[in-house]
Structure formats: C-alpha cells, structure tokens
Design a protein around this nucleic acid. Structure first.
Lengths: 338, 338
DNA sequence: TTGTAGGCGTTATCAC
DNA sequence: GTGATAACGCCTACAA
C-alpha cells in the first residue's frame, strides 16, 4: 500500500505538504503542488479514508434509516437524499428498519458508534415515550412528525392539510360516501395515519357530510396488498362508497387493483385519490390522483439541516428547527368527473 | 469521548482485556468479562469504528452501485442486497451511477479509496474496452453480463433464455405479431437489450414466425415513460400487433399505460409480458405477466461471492466465478387467453 | 488468562 | 510556504 509518506519521498517534500495539497490548503507554491500531484499520479496514491476519519473524527457518511427501500416512496426518497447529500460531499448509507421500533433503535445505535456523522431517521415505530433516546449529542434529523419535544430537527409533510385537500377534492368531484383506507388506530398517537385521518374528518365536517365509521378500512401496513384487501372489504360491505382517500399512493395502487377485482369502475363508480405522488401514479390505469408534498424540497431540507448540525460540532448548538413542506393536489384520471 | 482505556481503568483491567471482550475472544474469565461489560454499560462506551478500521484494514461496509434506487427493480434489488449483507455483518452504502460510464467509474474509485471492503456493481455503462479497470486488487462482483474476460466474479440473469420463454409464452397464448419494446442498439454490444433481443428472435424462429423489424420499438432508457411512448408508436404504426414483450417490467407498466391511452384492450386485443417480476406487476390493471429471475437468490449469491473475496485477503486468489440465475414464467392477466 | 509495546496513515499544531 | 512532532483509538504480536 502506498502511503502519504511514499508520495512525500517521491516528490521530495514532507508528508504535511502532501496533506496540504490533498486538502486544497492555500499556502502551497504552485510549483510544489504540481510536483506533489505528479507523484500522486505516478504512484497511483489513494488516501486511506479510515486513517483520515480517525484523525478528523468525521466519516463523510450519513445514515438514512427508512422502513424499506423497496417501497416506491422510500426508494424515491432515498434517491433524492443521496442526490442532496452529494451536493454536500456526503455519502449515504441506508439502513432498513423494517418499520419497527427495534430497527429504528438499531439505526440510532449505529450513529453512536460514529459510523456516520449524522442520521436522517424516517420514524414509524418510535413514540413519545422514546423521547430520551433522541437526546443525544450527535446530529439527527427526523423525517416525520414532531412527536417529540426534544431538541431535534424535524422535516414533516403537511399531513393534515394534504389529507383535507385530498378529501375535499373528492367532494368537489361529487363524492358523498368517501371511504378512508388507512393504517388504523386513529387518534391514539400522533403519526401519519392519525394526522391524515384528522384531515379527512375535517374535510367531511367542512362539507357537512356525516362521518360513517363503516367507511374506514384499516390496513395493517402501508402495502399494495393491504390496499387491495381493504378495497374488496369496502365493496363487499353494506355501506355505499363513491370515493376513497388512501393514506399513501402505494396503498392506493392496491385499492385500484382491489376495485378491479370486484369489477368496480374507476372513476365512473368510485373515485380514488392517494398521497405522496410517487412516480408510478402517473402510469397506473386509471392514472392516480394524489397529493404531492414536494419530496425534493423535503430531502434537500433534511440534508441541509443535518449538514448544519454536523458543521456546528462543539460550538454553540442552534435551536431545533422544523420544516413543514407545502403540497399540491395532482388531479389525474382516478378522480376525473363523470 | 470515552475510550477503551477509560473502560479498562473503570473495570480494573488492561485495554487489551476490554478489546478481547469486545471481539468475543474466548480466553477471558467470565467474571472478568462481566466486570468489563458492566464498565462498558456504566460509561456508555462505544467503539470508535474509524480506529478499528484503521487498525484492521477493513470497514465492514460494502458499496452497491446501481443506476438509480428509485426504479423499482433496483430498489427491490437493493433491499435484498442489504438484507443479504446483514447476514454477513456487512453494511451497504449505495452509490447511484445514473446509468452512465462515468458514474460507474466513480463507484470503482471509491473502493480504491478503501471506503468499502468491496463493491457490487450493477453495470450498464461499462463496456469491453473498460476491462482493464476491473483488474484491480480489491473485491468486486459484477451484477450483469459477463462482458469481460477479466478475473471478476459475475452474477447474471438468464437473459436469453428468459426472453425466449417470455416470447414463447405469448406465442403459446396465440400471438403472431409480437412487438419488442427494448433499449435499442441490438447486437452491437453484449448487454441486457441485446441478449433479450436474441431470446426474442430465437423464440420467433422456433415458432416459424417471420421477424418484422417494424415491430421493434426502442426506448432510450428503461423507463415507464419510454414504454408508454413506444406503445403509442406501435399502435399508431402500420404493422399489426397482438403481443408485446417488454425488456423490463418498468417498461411494461409504461406499455400498459400507452395502450390504455390508445384505447387498446389488454389482454383482449394485445397481450403484454415483461421481465423482472417486480412487486408492482401483481397490482397493475391488468396484472402483468413476467419472467421471475429469483432476485433473492441473485442478491444472496452476489453478497456471498463478495464476502468470500473479502475473506480471501492476501492469501491465494480463487478463480473467478459466475452464477446465472434460473427463472420462472409468471402468467397473470396481461397474457390471459381470449 | 491477562498485560505491554508499538504502530496502522493521517492531520493539527506550531515552529521555522 | 514548508516541515517536525505528536496524537487520534484501536488491535496484532508477543511476553508474562
């Protein structure tokens, strides 16, 4: 293995000068710099990242903990985060938490091992009782709801408002019997399900539509399979349905499939809208209306928050920040009139 | 920061004993071990991974270079690789190459910086002229075609055979005018497109169906958008079409959409089959027939190959291995009879 | 079964 | 503008 010492010897300088060249420090005579660079090229020298990490106390890598990368929403989120991190010269290592509390705790532990300079954590399993776990001395950004009072940066979606807009959109298109396909357990904890449920209820109230609990179809997990099963249950049930608000687009794709299984026409008999605006929604048949929360901006903001904390280091800690993204309603065929 | 020395002091032992405990070395009296573990817990000690890496020359992390994580196929592949790597106690850092030669070269350079113990590279851009680049002294596994003669492990799909089976499946279901929606540039280089094209041609020949070049619809990239555009072009063209073999499921989802745009019924007027068997295919309307190459086995094999190379270290280098996955035809609604 | 010495390759500090 | 020195925290040898 060729080290910085070898390069120094070959270039007739000290190791420190090579280091200065490597790190773009200013005070190096351009002639010296050229000689060093030549030696680096000749020897095909590569910095040893482990040694640099040990010395500097940084790894240049951040962790991204998501439930599963193979769900379109998180895959697309990961892609955006990786791109945003690259703009800050940061690498991204992905942890899969399996949407469980244990998985999320594991991800936290990894950062404590200084494997990563910081962590972006997409929470699902952690609850208010875990607040203490986040009172740590390394940078964390939570992607999700502000369920903690602790001093942790948050980047959140406009869940209530988006869900209200989605439901209002169905009402505007003539629906009066609007089902909710959702993660269940509404109102007990603050999470994606409960917030979107809240928005759904608000829209019904505003339109003077009576809430019908028979129209709430829970799905254990946010999967296509769960959505399909929920849709079939709704159709087979006794209550009329003419619209469905789905907690995520992934669930909505399942719902479209479940309705097709029962021969229900969309949007003719039932209209459907999702949440997230994943790329696939533009290509389903019928194409899927959705709420677009601007993932790109969320990813960029999360990385910016984290990079700021990483830089802050030992100095004064800034106050925790929160960013709630905006959204737009994307109307496609699944909520078309008629 | 609490170091191994602090733990040693607190436990009344030397740093080495702590190290032995940390690394599960056998010769430690259980009483001593208990005292050390207690001290670790008391002080909330965490190993410094950078220091360990420097000392051992390993990072415990492998790189996974894929074109884009936000395409379902690669997202699902990444999830499988991460799971398989976890079984070998390896972390996975994801690099996005953007399906370009430059991106793939960058990913290779990262491993040379010893950021990763090894690299799984899903090639798209590298060609036979880049063989030299892979003659490196660190572990690499290529996920894709055996386009190099170099001593590099490969894990490949049964591209020709799978494509032939897919096309034969359409023929068996009564199709006689079978289009190919594909990446273009067939036959010039050995890549996914050219191999699947070969399989398509073989199946036609075997069935005595004359190849019609008007039925080949190239898409610049393997996207839903490209698939939709290709399908519209096919329908608008002058040649009859009653079946479409799509180079990937992602493209096939686009094709289903493009056919819907033109009011073509699937499978009534045109039957469609894809390749990859991504999860979404079971939930499209109509659901998508496909070739399933057993990703899980491929991911597991790729990680096993890489782990073996990593262990091999300075010792004798084993010969390069190649693994070609098997496949099954998954028949769903999009190729149903009638 | 436990401890001592030394160095992995880099960079911060400060001197020249 | 350049260089000597001293860590960073851990683990491989070997000794006790």
């Amino acid at each position: 293995m060729v080290t910085i010492q070898d390069v120094a010897k070959a270039a007739g300088v000290s190791a420190m000068t090579v280091s200065h060249v490597l790190n773009d420090h200013p005070h190096v005579r351009s002639e010296t710099r050229a000689r060093v660079l030549q030696a680096i090229a000749d020897l095909d020298y590569r910095v040893n990242v482990a040694a640099r990490n040990l010395r500097t106390g940084r790894t240049g890598t951040i962790g991204l903990a998501v439930p599963e990368v193979d769900r379109p929403y998180f895959g697309q989120l990961a892609a955006e985060i990786i791109a945003a991190a690259a703009r800050h010269n940061l690498k991204v290592a992905i942890e899969q938490t399996g949407a469980s509390r244990e998985g999320e705790l594991d991800a936290l532990a990894l950062s404590r091992n200084r494997l990563y300079d910081g962590l972006i954590l997409s929470t699902v399993g952690l609850g208010p009782t875990d607040t203490d776990l986040l009172k740590v001395d390394y940078p964390i950004v939570i992607l999700g709801e502000r369920i903690f009072d602790g001093p942790v940066d948050h980047v959140a979606m406009p869940n209530v408002e988006g869900a209200r807009a989605a439901t209002a959109h169905l009402i505007e298109r003539g629906c009066r019997h609007i089902a909710l396909v959702d993660g269940g357990a509404q109102g007990e904890e603050v999470n994606v399900s409960s917030l979107r449920y809240t928005g759904y209820r608000q829209a019904l109230d505003e339109a003077g539509i009576t809430f019908d609990p028979r129209l709430v179809a829970p799905t254990a997990r946010f999967t296509m399979e769960g959505g399909a099963a929920a849709a079939r249950r709704l159709v087979d049930g006794e209550a009329d349905v003419d619209g469905v608000f789905c907690v995520t687009d992934t669930v909505a794709i399942g719902v479209l499939r479940g309705l097709a299984d029962r021969g229900v026409r969309v949007p003719g008999e039932v209209k459907v809208i999702g949440f997230d605006n994943i790329a696939e929604g533009a290509y389903t048949v019928p194409s899927l209306s959705s709420i677009d929360p601007d993932h790109s901006l969320m990813a960029d903001t999360a990385v910016r928050f984290l990079a700021r904390r990483i830089k802050e280091k030992g100095g004064k800690r800034e106050v925790a920040r929160e960013f709630v993204s905006h959204f737009t309603v994307v109307a496609r065929e699944s909520t078309a009139a008629g």
